[in-house]
Structure formats: C-alpha cells, structure tokens
Design a protein around this nucleic acid. Structure first.
Length: 659
DNA sequence: GAACTATTCGCCCTCTGCTGGAATATG
DNA sequence: ACATATTCCAGCAGAGGGCGAATAGTTC
C-alpha cells in the first residue's frame, strides 16, 4: 500500500446522529434481523474495513461529539476518545448526508496491554468515500500534532482504494501495509484521555466491526447498546450487561434488533445471553465442579462427567468397525473419518490435500503460504506449528528425552531412536538394494544419496582419468576406470618396461637417468629408491640389525628367503640328515655374520629387466663414479611373482642379492 | 440450564528427507 | 602417509495423522 499524505482541514467535531438514526441508516443498508448489519459500499455510504477488535469499543454519545470509551480487558481502564471530525479532504457539506462515520472520522482504540489498536477512517466526499479501515496505532495519548506524521498499520489490506476523484491524500491502494497520515492541523485534537466523562448514566453502544464473509467485500458491524450506571461499572467478567429500565428511544430501536453480547475481554460475541454467560466463565478461575477421584476441577458438569469417564473407562461411543471407543460422539465421528470412512471434508484449494479436521487444513495451508507464526525466542527459527517449535527448543536445551532401552543412548526425537534400535539392535535389519548396482545400503535416505551421487545423469561430462572416455553418470565412470586397473598403463619411453602405478615408473625411469636421490649419510652411497637405502642402512650401519636367515636343514647354509632356501635344499645332496617331511625349514634369527671383505666391496644395482641391466652396465662404463656396482635384473629374480610392481619390497631385493 | 453437537486447540506421534561429521574404503 | 570417495549415523526439520479435551452453538 503506497504511503500517502493526508491533509486535514479544521473541522468541528463530527456530529454523530442519534443512535436510532444511525441504526436506521445501517439497517437501511441491509436489514438483518440478527442485528448484524452489513454495510456495503455504495455512494453515500462508508465502506468499513476493520480488523481485530479486541476489547470493547463503546461509543459514548453526547450531543455534539462522540466519545469512544475504551476498555482494555487487562486493566479495565477506560479511555475517552473524543472524536473530532478529522476532515481529510472532503468538501464542505458533502458529508452531511452521511450517517454515522460520515465525513472523516477517526476512532482510536489504544493498543492497551498488547491489544491492537483500531483506527477508523471515514474520509472523502460523498461520491468518493472510501471505506474506514482498521489501523493499528501505538498506545499513546494522541493529539493532532502527534498525528501529523503517524504511521498506521493497516490491519486489513484489502481495502478499496479511494476514488480517483477524491481529493483525499490517503491511498489504500497497493500492497504496502501502512499509510501516512499528515494532518497539518494542530488545532484539531484527537484526544485520548484517561477516565470518563463526569456524566453518570451514560449511554453506550457496542460496535464491533469485523470482516464479512470470506470473499465478500463487506464489513460486518455488530451493534448493541446498553447503559451502565457509571462508566466504572462497565460489565466485568462474568457479568452480563445490564439493561436499564428507562430505555431511550434509541435503545428501543436497538432492541428491535436482536442484540449481540460482546465479551469485553476477548472478541467473543454471542446473540444469546446464556452463551455469553457461559463464555464469561472461561475468563474466571471459577471451577465449581470437582472430580471426587482426583480433585481436578472443571467449569461445567459436562466436562466433569467426561473427565470422570476417563477414570472409569466409560466410553459410551463405540466404533462399530474396530475396538476403539470414545467419550463423545464427535470423537467417534472423527475417528471413523480418520480410520474407516476416510471422509475428508476440508479440501485445500491449492493442492489435492484434504483433511478430516479444519485445523489440519489450516496447518497445511501454511506450507503454501510459508507462514511461520511460532518464533523461537532464542534463534531465528520459526515454526509452522507449536509442536515443531517445542521440538526445536530441544536443540537449545540439549534435552534428549528418548533413551534406547538396550544401550541407553539418548536421542532428541523418537524417530531417531527408533532407527537406532532398528539398525543397531535388531536382527532383521532392513537393507536397501540399489536398483542400478550391487550396492546395499542400510538406510533409505543414504540410498537416496547414493543414487544422487552415483546414478544421476550429470550434464557436464566426466572424463576418465586414464583415457579419453567420457561419462555422464559417475557410477559408469567408476566402473570404466576399474577396467584400467590391471592395465600396465605406464610404459617406459626408453625401454619395454610397463607398470600399473606411476610411482613405479618414476623409480624405473631413474634407471635410465641415473638419478639416485637417496644418499647414505654414513658412507656416501646413493640409491634410486628409499627402500634400497633403508636396506642398506640396516645391513651395514645398524649394529642392532639381526637379519632373518633361513637355514638349509641339510647343509646349514643360510638364506634370507625361505623359498630360496627350499629350492636349495631340494638340490642339496649333503649327507646331513634329511629334514622331516613336515619341517619346512626353521626360521631362526642369527646374529649378522661379519661381512666378508668381498661382499663388503661388492655393490649391487638392482634393475628391472635384462635390458635395463645391460643399459646399466653401459652407463657405468661411462660414469666411473658408479663403478663397482653389479647390475642385477630384478625381473629375473622375481620370475613368477604375480605383482612385481606392487610388491617391490626389501625382501625381494634381498632375494636378488641372495641370488 | 442441561444436554448434545460442532468446532477448535493442543499435544504427541510417525514417516520422511536432508545435512554434516565420523568411520571406513580406496587409490 | 595422504587425499578422496563412500557409507554410516545421529541430528534436525517438514508434513501430516490421530486423539483428548476445552469451548461454542444449538436444541430441548
């Protein structure tokens, strides 16, 4: 709603016509026997748009002015709002033909004790009057100067915009929620005074304005009048309004219309005194009917009876289709709708959702509107219903009310605990088989993640790490890449050597380049592999190193590898006793023998393949610094080894050296 | 005013799905 | 040893079902 400035010209108090005339005027609009007058907008009338009307709004009619007696339920404090004709822009005389709320009127209900205030604006010329609107206003004592630039919160947004011919600066069109009121007329005052007029036996009438039926452009005015002896004797909670014997003419007129009784504490209204009285008891703590079994008190006999039924188990309304039984017939009907008939009278206009209860539909609609009325006081979270907020609050309190009866782990939600028990402590744990691969996943939600990550079509191509193939599904890519697994993808550009892992190729290439990045700090020897250096360090510079030696059971010769010893022993024709068939040779730790002088001077260079060995020999002839090394073809030594690349171990090197 | 009925509120529950950290597997 | 991917798992919120109970409307 676009903000607009409202200019106010000096004007005397709006003369409210005699109540009967007002009512007649209203009744002319639309005769309603029940006293609910529907005021429709048409030339000469003021459309009213009103929002919540908490608290009673009483118009204290005096001769030349209208005072609104404002009572707030909490403190019963009353205020008088002297209504002036806040003449916005209407032309003189144009409004005189109007009934009540003619010309510009502003009724103010202060937002006492948290109640929204109400401002009614009646404005414009006879031809272009637009509706009064309900506007929230801060609780203050207002004077016109203060109203010069007041921001009013419009409680109802669907107000009709003023006619274009109106000179009113008030614009209710648009979607913003506030209008700007700029009076500019300080001499006019809108007073909100504490206390009441000194006049006793004032006459009051109650005016409640609320939106009309849904979809109808109308406001329902509920009007009732009565008088009280003194303003302070405004009906208290639990008391019905008292009619005076000497009814005025206007009251008689009013009485012709069936009165409504409005609670001055809440918005409740009723056309029945009994309902009104019963309602007023809800505002008291009076609970005269006490359960003799648990001493719980109730307002009504019916409530007590229903309660006692819960003690006795009396449930007179039994379901014919199941074993359920209920205290009231309504509960049975609802139950049958839920469980048996599946009748769902409340249908969502925006989707196919339908519910058994109106409250469920109301809750559902919040999922469309995004409304979140329940704000967490500790964080920005807001919930769509009370339970979720309560559940959310556990995240602040740390409360974990649900405990696993087996392992006593605690959980914030029952569902979480249930899944825990199912997955951790149940025998028949459900598993979820991926429909696209062999993967079995424990949780459905994780299967969904699996599907999303591995089996979802991706617009961007994913390229194989090892070839030029591309895929749009990650699972297909992974499966494809596995086909490269046993390939010796890394081929030496200097020789025929090929291997599966790049790191092995890096080591191999050093046999061509001569690079030996691993140097022994003790003897200046250099190695192409760190493992070779480690073996060297252990063998020659670690005094605590005890090599594992496999002795031939026939001749006692030692070997560093068991299979070499075995091969030897099979050929050993020593006259020493044969080993027992079960004896595969003993693995004994022997103190490292003193290194023979020849061995100490013989340096081995382990290479892979005969070609590499030959090249190494040639290289050494060109590089004297490398002299003294004896190239050994590791490939030959490891003949029969299934996975040479990946098991290039110290043991293998030792085996070569054994050889 | 009692009794019955309809409506509304409030509470609790289940099911579902997403998220992120921990644990584990893999390269 | 390290990085990355995958699976496990608890936490948390969204949505909706179901029911007990309070309150309001209506009838007698």
């Amino acid at each position: 709603m676009a903000g607009a400035e409202l200019s106010v010209v000096p004007k005397q108090f709006t003369q409210i016509k005699e109540p009967e005339l007002m009512l007649e005027k209203v009744l002319e609009e639309e005769q309603k026997e029940d006293g609910v007058c529907r005021v429709k907008g048409h030339p000469g009338s003021a459309e009213l748009e009103a929002g919540s009307t908490h608290g009673a709004l009483q118009a204290n009619i005096q001769e030349e002015e209208l005072e609104l007696v404002l009572a707030t339920p909490e403190d019963n404090e009353k205020h008088i709002v002297t209504l002036q004709s806040v003449h916005f822009t209407s032309e003189d005389g144009a409004l005189q033909e109007l009934g009540w709320l003619e010309e510009g009127q502003v009724g103010v209900q202060p937002a006492g004790s948290g109640l929204p205030s109400l401002v009614w604006l009646g404005e414009g010329s006879q031809q272009s009057l637009h509706q009064c609107v309900a506007i929230s206003i801060q609780e203050e004592v207002y004077s016109m100067p203060e109203l010069e630039r007041l921001q009013f919160q419009v409680l109802e947004e669907n107000a009709t915009p003023p006619g274009e011919d109106s000179r009113s600066a008030v614009s209710l069109a648009g979607s913003t929620e506030s209008i700007k009121l700029d009076t500019g007329q300080k001499e006019e005052q809108l007073l909100v005074e504490g206390g009441l007029s000194e006049k006793a036996e004032e006459q009051f009438f109650l005016v409640e304005a609320r939106p009309g039926e849904e979809g109808r452009d109308e406001i329902v005015l509920t009007i009732s009048n009565f008088t009280v002896d003194e303003p302070e004797t405004h009906p208290a909670a639990g008391e019905a309004p008292v009619e005076k014997a000497d009814e005025t003419h206007s009251q008689k007129k009013t009485k012709e219309v069936k009165r409504t009784f409005q609670c001055d504490i809440c918005v409740f209204t009723s056309s029945r005194m009994s309902s009104f009285n019963r309602h007023m008891k809800t505002h008291t703590s009076e609970k005269p009917h006490v359960c003799h079994l648990c001493l719980k008190a109730f307002r009504t006999v019916t409530l007590l009876r229903n309660h006692i039924n819960t003690h006795t188990g009396t449930r007179p309304y039994k379901c014919g289709d199941c074993d359920m039984a209920f205290v009231t017939s309504g509960e049975l009907v609802r139950h049958r709708r839920y469980k048996h008939t599946h009748e769902k009278p409340f249908k969502c206009s925006m989707c196919k959702y339908a519910s058994v209860e109106a409250s469920k539909l109301k809750r559902h609609i919040r999922s469309h509107t995004g409304e979140r009325p329940f704000q967490c006081p500790l964080c920005s979270y807001a919930s769509k219903d009370t339970y979720k907020l309560k559940r959310h609050m556990r995240t602040h309190s740390g409360e974990k009310p649900y405990e696993c009866h087996i392992c006593h782990a605690r959980f914030t939600q029952s569902g979480t605990m249930k899944i825990h028990v199912l997955q951790k402590h149940s025998e028949n744990v459900p598993k979820y088989q991926c429909p696209h691969c062999d993967t079995i996943i424990a949780r459905k939600s994780d299967l969904r993640v699996h599907l999303r990550n591995l089996h979802t079509y991706k617009a961007a191509e994913m390229k194989c790490r090892y070839c030029s193939a591309t895929f749009h599904e990650r699972y297909a890519l992974i499966q494809h890449q596995k086909t490269h697994k046993n390939e010796k993808r890394f081929k030496c550009e200097h020789c025929s050597y090929a291997c599966k892992q790049e790191r092995h190729m890096t080591v191999h290439v050093r046999t061509h380049t001569g690079e030996k990045p691993f140097a022994c700090l003790s003897c200046d020897k250099c190695f192409r592999q760190k493992q070779l250096l480690n073996v060297h360090l252990k063998k020659y510079h670690d005094t605590n190193f005890i090599p594992t030696v496999y002795e031939c059971p026939r001749c006692g010769k030692g070997f560093s590898r068991w299979n070499n010893m075995k091969r030897h022993s099979e050929k050993c024709d020593s006259e020493q006793e044969k080993p027992a068939p079960s004896e595969k040779g003993r693995r004994v730790k022997k103190r490292k023998p003193a290194v023979p002088k020849e061995a100490a001077t013989t340096r081995y260079l382990v290479v892979n393949g005969a070609e590499a060995a030959a090249e190494e020999t040639a290289l050494m002839s060109r590089a004297p610094s490398l002299g003294g090394l004896v190239p050994i073809d590791l490939g030959e030594a490891a003949a029969g080894s299934e996975d040479l690349d990946e098991d290039l171990t110290c043991e293998m090197i030792l085996a070569v050296m054994d050889k």
